[in-house]
Amino acid sequence: MAKTHVTMRVNGAEVEGLVEPRTLLVHFIRENLQMTGTHIGCDTTHCGACTVDLNGMSVKSCTVLAVQAEGAEISTIEGMANADGTLSALQEGFRMMHGLQCGFCTPGMIVRAHRLLQENTSPTEEEIRFGIAGNLCRCTGYQNIVRAIQYAAAKINGVEFQEAAE
């Protein structure tokens, strides 16, 4: 099958490659670009481990063809840290609030939460839970993931993180 030339921007850098039309975006990112932070969990559009940010949308990259991302602006977990290399508010939140155990879902969670906080800078707990409904975690029970996102929202808004009373 003839290969197609694709060009896109990934974490701010121009990248290109030759792919078959059937190549999935997640494979292009992991194999062609050798960026393995984006995980493949279910491969069936359910778990969200493969979530990347594509033109301002959170998408499951196991269900997007690389050719569909031609010309797109993409961010992956590798692009989430601050420009100076320090942890972003979200990364810090996951660290401080123990938002991960095995860590398999974490790249997708952080990339998704990044977009959620772009669209809604002060989400309620319910909005956070609804907003990450496309990301499954088998370890944490979500409680600490929600706290991690609340921590990040507070930090971004310049207020002190306060846990809601039980």
Binding site: T45, M57, V64, A133, G134
Partner: peptide, 9 residues
């Protein structure tokens, strides 16, 4: 319908 990621696409 579905979840946020699916609704974007």
């Amino acid at each position: 319908i579905a979840d946020p990621q699916v609704r974007y696409m």
